[in-house]
């Protein structure tokens, strides 16, 4: 700060930068405080127990959110169970099983998939996937858990693939020449060297994908049918917490209905925070480990 300090004084600029950084941090805090503030009535145990029940019948005074919670968890985990192995297959294809040209094309397509609006996926699924499921399985309207699982799996696939891809990139170049010089086929290299060495990265990809699947609103809202119930099969309709929030705000309900909305919001916020903490611990361990 010696020679040029008369041209532009560095102190105010630094303060502006620091303040705007802390504004960003304050946003996160204020979201939490708002949700917590609106959830105050939950401290009353009778209110709490009425929310923690399985029935959602707003006109009879039942405001249970447990079926939404189950719906969210069920949908997110099953779509990840579908997307993760497929994502792994795509990653192996990109890293040696497939020829270089098609591998680049596949990776590029995956990146392009991230730019498709969620609502467009939902829109096309409503007019292609739902009628297809209705015709093939001849059960219900087609707006079902299964439709949402398939739609959501497509939505989180790029997240999973790109995360796995970055993990593969840290290990595969190290062993590529060695494995080839030893006469290993690309699939052998991936199965026996790269995949065993990247367990932590896979966990991170799974957690991140699960977070996205839990947080998505439009796919379950448009495809899952939104009946607040426990599904008996994949052809039944379900309602997720995210869809619940969207639906309750749209239909003007009474006060306990609003409370259920903020309770769902708080649960989602906590889940996001937990997921982030988990990812951070994974990353921290990796830095210490190596």
């Amino acid at each position: 700060m010696s020679a040029g300090s008369h041209i532009s004084s560095p102190i105010p600029a630094r303060i502006v930068i620091a303040v705007s950084a802390w504004i960003s941090a304050a946003v996160v805090l204020s979201i939490f405080l708002f949700l917590a503030w609106f959830c105050r009535p939950l401290l009353d145990t009778t209110v709490l127990s009425s929310l923690l029940s399985w029935d959602w019948r707003p006109f009879q005074g039942d405001f249970g959110i447990l079926s939404m919670l189950t719906g969210s968890l069920l949908l997110a985990s099953s779509s990840m169970l579908l997307a993760f192995p497929v994502g792994m297959g795509i990653c192996c294809f990109v890293h040696g099983v497939g020829p270089p040209g098609p591998a680049r094309l596949v990776l590029w397509t995956i990146k392009l998939m991230t730019s498709v609006p969620t609502v467009v996926y939902g829109f096309v699924a409503v007019f292609v996937l739902v009628p297809l499921l209705r015709d093939v399985f001849r059960e219900g309207s087609g707006f079902s858990l299964l439709a949402a699982i398939l739609g959501l799996a497509v939505l989180v696939l790029p997240t999973v693939v790109l995360m796995l891809h970055s993990q593969f990139l840290t290990i595969e170049p190290q062993v590529r020449l060695t494995a080839a010089a030893l006469g290993m086929a690309p699939s052998q290299k991936l199965l026996h060297l790269v995949i065993p060495a990247s367990g932590r990265g896979f966990l991170a990809a799974a957690i991140l994908g699960l977070g996205r699947a839990l947080g998505d609103t439009m796919i379950p809202l448009m495809l899952a049918g939104n009946a607040a119930q426990l599904p008996g099969s994949v052809f039944d309709s379900i309602r997720t917490m995210t869809a619940h929030i969207a639906l309750v705000v749209a239909t003007d309900s009474r006060s306990l209905a609003y409370l259920s909305l903020f309770a769902c919001g708080l649960l989602l916020f906590m889940t996001t925070a937990l997921i982030n903490l988990g990812l951070r611990m994974l990353a921290g361990n990796r830095e210490n480990g190596s």
Binding site: S24, A25, V27, V28, L29, I31, L35, L208, G211, L214, G215, D216, T217, T242, I245, A246, G265, L268, F269, T272, A273, I275, N276, L279, R280
Partner: peptide, 12 residues
């Protein structure tokens, strides 16, 4: 905080 904000579901 930034990571948390990035992982926040948009409905929140």
């Amino acid at each position: 905080c930034v990571d948390l904000l990035a992982g926040m579901p948009s409905i929140l």
